[in-house]
Nucleic acid binder design. Structure first.
Lengths: 209, 209
DNA sequence: TATACTAGACCGACTGGTCCGTCTCCCCCA
DNA sequence: TGGGGGAGACGGACCAGTCGGTCTAGTATA
């Protein structure tokens, strides 16, 4: 019946406030006021401020891993897998930008047990990218001279950094950014031959002007 | 006569502690203990904890702008300028990793006046990259279809993200990482013709195995 | 009667910053 | 040469405020 549960309202407020001011600069009282609840309501839904931070982290990383697995499963060749993985990651910013910001900015403040849990999932997510790059090299589609970890982290960097500057009202839509990033990455990893593959021409961005 | 001044010791400790635990999780007392000084010593050298954070930000961004201007001035063609800019940025992590971490993780906690100041310098630094990309497109060396801001931010992302994972004891030296990143970026922005330019073959990474 | 809260006073721990006192170094003049 | 003294660097006890979290009392809904 109620449009959003108290728990959801608290999470939404926290996300917004943590993103703007940082975890430590936002007090429980501020969250409580912003989400129109009370101290009682807050501590009824969360055991601590730390647990709230963990919840935000966990919901995001779980979503992202699912998307990565999906992109891996529905595509055939490594080049296609990478292309779709990159695009789906970038497009995620449209909705999950606040989550990403909190995830990458505030994870130091996670208490130890929570941190360990998130670290495991983060590794899983990273390994998915490593795997795609490795498969691409093995299939001869990606350049042999590129080391898997460095290349993967370079791709992650390019994508993840988006949270630092992306604005929904900006000049470029998330769709365009996704296409351009995917283009840049495909240009940088593909071998000469793979780049000429007619099936892969669709990877390359053509500006609409 | 003394090996390091009190101010320098405070800055070094703060850098190390902020990087590991975050600005708000580190108390002035902790910094004071770690740098073997006292509350009096601290507040004699800095007006506030905020000013200390600003000092760290400012010293780093100033250094980085200098390096970027230098890479721009000593090189001839846009391709060379970009290649050297990327490499000099990456190589900076060797020494400035803690600075970069604090710069990108803790700038939300800068008080408003300080924040405005840093924001200006950050824009200057960003504009230097935009300029290189623009010059490359104008000279016909970089692909025409790539939008300047997106391409520039992609490059920034790839480079800056390094602070999240780079370890000095890691498998790859900072020199190798710099060469690989520069290779990836040159592959992604250069036109077909520019890529075949004999002068530019040195941009491309050859693994040492 | 159980659940899911609201309202908000209150507690104890902790934190940034102050303040006064001391110690050291160097300059000046006898 | 030496001693007086001023300025800056630093030591550390202390204060005032803040924050996460608890707790009691009460309300609405099913």
């Amino acid at each position: 019946m109620p449009s959003r549960s108290t728990k959801q309202r608290i999470t939404d407020s926290a996300l917004k406030l943590f993103e703007e001011f940082g975890f430590h600069a936002v007090t429980v009282d501020t969250i409580v006021k912003d989400s129109s609840t009370s101290k009682g309501g807050f501590y009824h839904n969360f055991r601590s401020k730390d647990e709230l931070l963990y919840t935000i982290h966990d919901s995001f990383i779980t979503y992202v891993i699912d998307k990565a697995v999906e992109a891996h499963d529905v595509n055939e060749t490594p080049a296609e897998k990478l292309y779709e993985t990159v695009r789906s990651f970038v497009k995620m910013f449209e909705v999950y930008r606040p989550h990403v910001t909190v995830f990458y900015q505030e994870s130091v403040y996670l208490s130890p047990e929570f941190y360990e849990n998130i670290k495991k999932k983060r590794k899983k997510y990273k390994d998915l990218m490593f795997k795609v790059v490795q498969e691409g090299k093995e299939a001869g589609e990606f350049r042999e001279e590129l080391p898997i970890p460095i290349t993967s982290m370079a791709i992650f960097g390019m994508i993840n950094w988006t949270y630092k500057w992306y604005k929904a009202e900006g000049e470029y839509s998330i769709q365009e950014i996704a296409d351009i990033y995917a283009d840049l990455i495909m240009h940088s990893v593909l071998t000469e031959e793979a780049r000429k593959n007619p099936d892969y021409q669709c990877f390359f961005y053509r500006s609409s002007n």
